[in-house]
Amino acid sequence: MGLARESECRVFRGLRMKNVLIVVLLSWAAGALADPGPLVIDKSKRGRASDGDIEAVHQEIATGTTDLRKIRLAIVNGMLETKGRAWTYEGEGDGYILARFDYRGHTIISRIEYNQELVQLKFHAGSEAYECENLQEDGVCYKNHRGYFNYTRNLRTSIASNLQLVSAGASS
């Protein structure tokens, strides 16, 4: 009887731990694979850049079209036509394109997420000076070198301009 109860408890404990692990892993995976969505800045987080800097990089962009091919083209055109040095293609996956920026020995890699409604830039990686110092689970970088916000802001602006062209073409 005692042995049976002990093994029952062990099973119960194992199941509980397993459930907790599954919930935690799923919520982490959801964060890591997050779709583009409205930017919400957590004002309670300390050690972050100004809201304006964060918005200039991570604010979502309305696509203006549901054609994913056109959205991808607008993103790649945006990478090539950005102010200053072009961003280069670093691979892609389901719903995102990786864009790389190498300049003066430093590197930034942005993960440009897209769906039929929105495009949003997320931080993917950075070398030394451009490592994000306050990276949120949804890929929004709250604190980084000034250069990160400047270069990535230009990329976002360029992609937004190209999406506007697509949108204008779609409505005419």
Binding site: V20, G31, D102, T107, I109, L135
Partner: peptide, 21 residues
């Protein structure tokens, strides 16, 4: 134990991919 595990996982900072030049 579950609470400790959750606290540990939440405390682990979100890190990005390493970059090679």
């Amino acid at each position: 134990l579950s609470t400790l595990l959750v606290m540990f996982l939440v405390a682990v900072p979100v890190t990005a991919e390493p970059v090679h030049p």
